[in-house]
């Protein structure tokens, strides 16, 4: 107990840092991957190569990814920048893939009727396609968020902070309490994100 009370403010600060890293990365990833997924759904011949690239990004081991970004100008100046860029890269694939699949998966007769009714391309997107694909897109965001909360712990390796710092410190000093002080809040964050986004996903699901 005394361990907790001694470290409470550190844990809190690092949790907020962790959240901040993940949330920023999710913001950028969504801002890139949702529009990209929409574009791919409109011109599916690009889907394979583009999703392929996102797939490759996903396979880079996270420690290596942070390492690659370290020597880059501007990015390398601040560890948080590296962390956010790396996390964004990991979050792209699930969001991109789900946005694409969600829109492509809409019943073709609905898409045809939307065209035949004379909806403009923008009206089709906002009134029909996005609402019908919303739960898919949210499922992608959920997968991406949970992954990112986990990977963000590695960001401490390049000094970006976050709960990983406690884990790394704990490993270095063979102190399991420190490891758990980082791992448990990280796991709780992941569970919370999963729960909240899962709920949103359920709320936006269109009953057929």
């Amino acid at each position: 107990m005394s361990f907790l009370s001694q470290n409470a403010s550190t844990i809190l600060t690092l949790t907020i840092e962790h959240l901040w890293l993940t949330a920023s990365a999710m913001f950028f990833a969504a801002a890139i991957a949702i529009p990209a997924g929409i574009l791919l759904a409109r011109s599916p011949r690009w889907a394979r190569p583009v999703i392929g690239i996102a797939n490759i990004l996903q396979t880079i081991p996270s420690l290596a990814m942070f390492g690659f970004l370290l020597p880059l100008p501007w990015l390398g100046d601040r560890a948080a920048r590296i962390a956010i860029v790396a996390l964004t890269a990991y979050a792209l694939l699930p969001i991109l893939r789900n946005t694409y699949a969600g829109i492509r998966g809409i019943d073709p007769s609905l898409v045809e009727v939307a065209r035949a009714l004379g909806l403009t391309s923008r009206q089709r997107l906002f009134k029909i396609e996005l609402p019908l694909a919303a739960s898919f897109i949210l499922a992608g965001l959920r997968t991406a968020t949970v992954t990112c909360v986990g990977i963000a712990t590695i960001a401490a390796a390049v000094g970006a902070g976050g709960l990983g710092e406690l884990i790394f410190r704990g490993v270095a000093s063979v102190d399991n309490r420190l490891v758990l002080a980082g791992a448990i809040p990280a796991a709780l964050l992941a569970l919370a994100a999963d729960g909240i986004l899962g709920l949103l996903e359920k709320l936006t699901a269109v009953k057929q």
Partner: peptide, 29 residues
């Protein structure tokens, strides 16, 4: 397209809209 009504076998009512909104969708557009 707005000046041509279109009816198909699959109907194609939008599942996330009420009937009222489905029916008046062209007017909404």
């Amino acid at each position: 397209r707005r000046s041509i009504g279109y009816v198909i076998q699959e109907v194609g009512l939008f599942p996330h809209f009420t009937l009222e909104r489905n029916v008046a969708l062209v007017l909404e557009a």
